[in-house]
């Protein structure tokens, strides 16, 4: 039991860490191709991280302890969250207590750390980024809660493990509510990872940057850690969407063959989803800051509708 838990946690976390930079690069590549550029090599993410880890870490002269702790704390918080979300193997019993509300709180905690970091360096851009991030998250948080509430309502459990288990038993096309849920979950990925209609991850433009603004003062190893935790967050959210909509192929018992199959399939499904995200990003222009609630409202509408329909049918 304990041994299995250990294997599960180790496999899951290692897998997340390994594939996350790859997914980031897939999206970048798709966007570049749409814009008519060659785009980075698919493994460029790993090279970047390796380069950053070797570089010197500089701190602002006003920086306090938060700047020193936050990078490690953020990544470890997300790794704890990563234990909760089974990617390619759902054990028989719930090995780790994976309450979805705890998962949400972990995500928010990561967010809070980064916002504090933006303030800590005492630069104007950092403060601006933090304030934007916090106002956005104040609006998105209720929507997130409702989306997950709908998820919980549909599957009848608070545990991510059970939710995934239930998802493997229902054929999604047969259950309209699951289909409906995919829309708000997708929007959630876009918003939480700061993608195009909400934020542009590739720009350091003073007018629009949100996430990058907060990280402007970090460098070297710290920056690498933040990039990694950002990638991990994206992979986790993608895993929730994927394992609910297309759970096919996910390993249900511990055997080498099933695990390899599950891992490869997850990689494939993830790549496809990344391509979709990349295309979605290319299709939309960055929204004005005050129009972003529109997007949230669509997610909200869909999740409420899901709950209604679950009640009505």
């Amino acid at each position: 039991m304990i041994g299995e838990s250990f294997i599960f946690a180790l496999l899951n976390v290692a897998f997340v860490l390994v594939i996350s930079p790859f997914f980031m690069m897939v999206i970048k590549k798709v966007k570049a191709r749409v814009q008519g550029r060659q785009g980075p090599h698919l493994l460029q993410g790993y090279y970047n991280l390796a380069k950053l880890f070797r570089k010197e870490t500089l701190y602002s002269e006003y920086a306090g302890c938060i700047s020193r702790i936050a990078p490690y704390a953020a990544l470890s918080i997300l790794l704890v969250a990563a234990i909760m979300v089974p990617l390619f193997w759902i054990p028989e019993q719930e090995l780790v207590t994976a309450n979805i509300i705890v998962f949400l709180y972990l995500l928010v905690a990561g967010r809070l750390l980064i916002a504090l970091l933006g303030l800590d360096a005492a630069s104007t851009f950092g403060g601006m980024g933090s304030s934007r991030e916090m106002s956005l998250s104040a609006i998105i948080e209720p929507v997130t809660v409702v989306v997950f509430a709908a998820l919980v309502y549909v599957t009848g459990s608070f545990s991510i493990h059970d939710i995934f288990r239930t998802a493997t038993t229902i054929f999604p096309a047969y259950n309209p509510t699951v289909l409906l849920l995919s829309v708000p979950l997708f929007i959630l990925i876009i918003v939480e990872t700061g993608r195009v209609p909400v934020d542009n991850p590739e720009t350091h433009l003073e007018l629009t940057m949100v996430h990058e603004g907060m990280l402007l003062d970090t460098s070297g190893r710290n920056l690498a850690l933040f990039e990694l935790s950002h990638a991990v967050k994206q992979t986790l959210l993608m895993a929730i969407l994927l394992n609910i909509i297309v759970p096919a192929g996910i390993a249900l018992e511990l055997s080498v063959g099933a695990l390899i199959l599950g891992g490869v399939l997850f990689l494939l499904k993830g790549t496809v989803l990344c391509v979709i995200i990349g295309l979605f990003e290319s299709a939309y222009a960055k929204m004005r800051f005050f129009q972003i609630p529109n997007l949230f409202m669509i997610a909200f509408f869909f999740s409420i509708l899901t709950i209604f329909i679950e009640v009505m049918l």
Binding site: P293, F296, M297, I298, F308
Partner: peptide, 18 residues
């Protein structure tokens, strides 16, 4: 009303009709 408000209202409408 702008679209977000309209969506909000339509949620209420569906609930009310139901």
């Amino acid at each position: 009303l702008r679209p977000p408000g309209a969506l909000m209202l339509s949620i209420l409408i569906i609930l009310l009709v139901y």
